[in-house]
Design a protein around this nucleic acid. Structure first.
Lengths: 199, 199
DNA sequence: TCCTATATTGTACGAATGGTCAACAAGCAT
DNA sequence: ATGCTTGTTGACCATTCGTACAATATAGGA
């Protein structure tokens, strides 16, 4: 006895939200066609009707996660600082706050991170996202290198951007694994101190 | 028709090696009692005889991984540098090389990392390991703060150590996810440049 | 040598999972 | 109304997994 109908786009979104709830709560390892169906309040056969195979659902959830997560973008608050060092500092702070305010998204990203180590389709998606992430920092780092060409001989803006990405992700990981010992404010102060030394 | 006997310690080690092979190859999500038994060439019932439940096997594998991974220690090559900045640089380089030379251990650590986000028993083990890791850097960072008390006002050695840990782990992650775009040598050069600026 | 403790195995069972399929209902064109 | 496309469902299947258990072989002590 089938239930009410809905457009394909609406159903896919409904199911993906259910998939996110399940994966964010119990991890991708516990993501099951039936668990997603129960969360979305549809039959498990309908999930397969819209996504064919579980693998495609997992991939679609990653795309949904990347899109729905407020991606890194240099906001107006950041861009209005005239000095590159101030923009770098503001961008680091903005991203740290974003990650700590979206703990479910962040944890789920870590799941896909580990998954990407062994599944190429996921790895290429994560790789593309990493490159977009680094690109936002690279512009600032290029200005820094122009200001201090001698001190940073042999250092590329791309590598400095990668270091900045490590700051953000490393903070998220340590805050997640070690919340009692890890102090986010102290960490931000340390980054500020290092950034200040770069001038 | 039972096979040959072995001491409990030998069998546990044999099974744990099998568990490592399976988990390192296919991920913890694919670690099953039967797969481990096949890898260790014993019956799957014997695995349960020695580890009672799968959960205990997973925990024992984490302990085995932490012990068998050459843990961070300030080697003599690092310790003989008189200047703290040189020791920091040498320690960063040593750890980066260690991670890149043990890719299987590193990837498996990431699995436990993600797992630790949702399972407390695993999280406390990872947390203890993170604290040991930071402690090795904190000693160096304390010297740095003594040398430059004015420039690093309000910055703690613990937080600087956390930043150093982020450098290492962030490098490992980006090298794993994005091997084509990520240049380890450039990354090391960037860290060297930043460390040089701290003087 | 016999006996007991224990290491080891094959079998089995219940639960969960991914996936298929026939049946059926809801909307839409004719 | 009638038929057609398609969204939706419950039932079903083969597989795998974790775990329990009875049977058996081995080693070592009495």
């Amino acid at each position: 006895m089938p239930g009410k109908r809905a457009s394909e786009a609406e159903r896919r979104e409904q199911i993906l939200r259910g998939a996110f709830e399940v994966a964010a709560r119990d991890g991708i390892g516990s993501l099951t066609i039936r668990a997603v169906a129960a969360e979305a309040q549809v039959s498990h056969a309908l999930v397969l009707f819209h996504f064919q195979r579980k693998e495609r659902l997992v991939h679609a959830l990653l795309d949904w996660l990347i899109e729905s997560t407020s991606v890194l973008h240099v906001s107006e608050d950041v861009a209005r600082f005239p000095r590159a060092l101030d923009r770098l500092h503001a961008l680091l702070q903005q991203e740290m706050e974003r990650l700590s305010h979206q703990p479910r998204h962040t944890r789920l990203f870590f799941d896909y991170w580990a998954l990407g180590a062994r599944h190429e389709e996921i790895r290429v998606r994560m790789s593309a996202e990493l490159q977009r992430y680094r690109a936002a920092f690279r512009a600032i780092m290029e200005e820094l290198l122009l200001a201090e060409p001698a001190a940073f001989a042999g250092v590329t803006a791309e590598a400095l951007a990668a270091v900045a990405v490590s700051w953000i992700h490393g903070c998220a990981v340590q805050a997640m694994i070690d919340p009692a010992q890890f102090d986010t404010d102290e960490y931000l102060a340390a980054m500020r101190g290092i950034v200040g030394q770069l001038a």
